[in-house]
Each structure stands twice: as C-alpha cells, then as structure tokens.
C-alpha cells in the first residue's frame, strides 16, 4: 500500500482522489462516509458527466493520460477502482520516463 509511484505513495493517491470527490461531488470538506468499495454510480455520487469531470481531473492532477478504452465501469466503479487505475497509469508513465 505504501509503495511510492511517480513521487506519490498509493496512500496519497487515494487521499487526493477521495478529497476531490468529497469536495467536488459531495460538496463536503470533511469525510463523506463513502467507503472505498462503495459503488459511486449506484450511490448516485457520480452521474454521466461526472465521470468525465473525473477523467479530466485525473489527467490534470496526476499528469497521466487516459485513453478512451480506459473509460469503462471497471476503472470508475468505486474509490478503490479509481485509485488502482490511477496507480497503474502512474506506473506506466514512470516506466516510459525511465526507458
């Protein structure tokens, strides 16, 4: 969990994403009570365009590039899924840089 990827620990990645969702989608600054594996879509936290805003955010904040095939339910269903996806992309970015 605490492995460092592209200067972020996985923990930090998780925190940044959670804070963003709390602030931007739930308009709460404190913990929203959203569990890591809660479905964001079934709970209605994120609706259609919300996914898109989230993609924009991830690209900008972590300087990763998200390609169209990445925009699928598996990568966005929960906080955990988004974190796992982001970490994978960060690893990919690092890999490219050191090549």
């Amino acid at each position: 969990m605490n492995e460092t990827v592209a200067s972020y620990t996985e923990e930090q990645v998780a925190q940044i994403i959670r804070a963003h969702i709390d602030q931007e989608f739930l308009f709460r600054t404190k913990d929203s009570g959203l569990a890591d594996d809660d479905s964001l879509i079934a709970r209605g936290v994120i609706d259609s365009m919300g996914i898109f805003r989230l993609v924009n955010f991830l690209e900008q904040r972590f300087e990763i590039s998200v390609s169209p095939p990445d925009i699928v339910m598996e990568n966005f269903r929960s906080l955990q899924a988004i974190r796992a996806f982001t970490v994978t992309r960060l690893r990919g970015r690092d890999g490219q840089e050191t090549d």
Binding site: I41, S48, I51, F52, V66, P68, P69, I71, V72
Partner: peptide, 18 residues
C-alpha cells in the same frame, strides 16, 4: 450504467483529445 453511456464518454474523450 449501460455500455452505450460508457461508449459516449469514450467518443467524447476521443473527439476532445484532438
């Protein structure tokens, strides 16, 4: 959400990436 909706995001992303 239905796959159609996910496909729409993919298309939008592809269009905007240009």
């Amino acid at each position: 959400m239905h796959p159609d909706i996910w496909r729409a995001f993919q298309q939008l992303h592809a269009l905007r990436s240009e």
